[in-house]
Amino acid sequence: MLATGGERGNARLVECRQPGAHDRGIFYATFCRRAGMAPVCSNPKHEITTVSLTADDVRKVARLARLGLDEGAIAEYATQLSSILDVVDHLETADTDNVEPMSHPLDLTARLRPDVAQATVDREAFQAIAPDTAEGLYRVPKVIE
């Protein structure tokens, strides 16, 4: 997967409508959104349509997230996630130079816990709700290393 642009530039996944004009019909076009530019094909005469997310991208993230999807679902999610990304792309309009990332609503630092062990593990209660256990172990299909 290619990266989208940084703070100023932007890249957009586009599909060239000119049949057979490129090795890959879908590629990234870089452009400057802040300057009011729109993405264009390397040959500006070619008409393009923008795509945010391909079925391949969906396959990759579904794999990362261990979601087993069939092809129908992949296509549907590609369309939906693309339209969500279209909304998200609005972020590009914001000038965030010199803005610190905010990972937490309150600018606090960690409170530390004293190192005191508490033996409060109720294995029986925990494993009563487990799908498969034996000899105190959680079981999964054999992993071959």
Binding site: R113, V116, A117, Q118, A119, V121, F126, G136, L137
Partner: peptide, 21 residues
């Protein structure tokens, strides 16, 4: 004595899953 993010003990060699809170 206890784990990095929980208060369960860290002793080695306990019965399986008895030191996992």
């Amino acid at each position: 004595q206890s784990k990095i993010f929980s208060s369960a003990p860290t002793a080695y060699g306990a019965e399986p899953n008895t030191q996992a809170n």
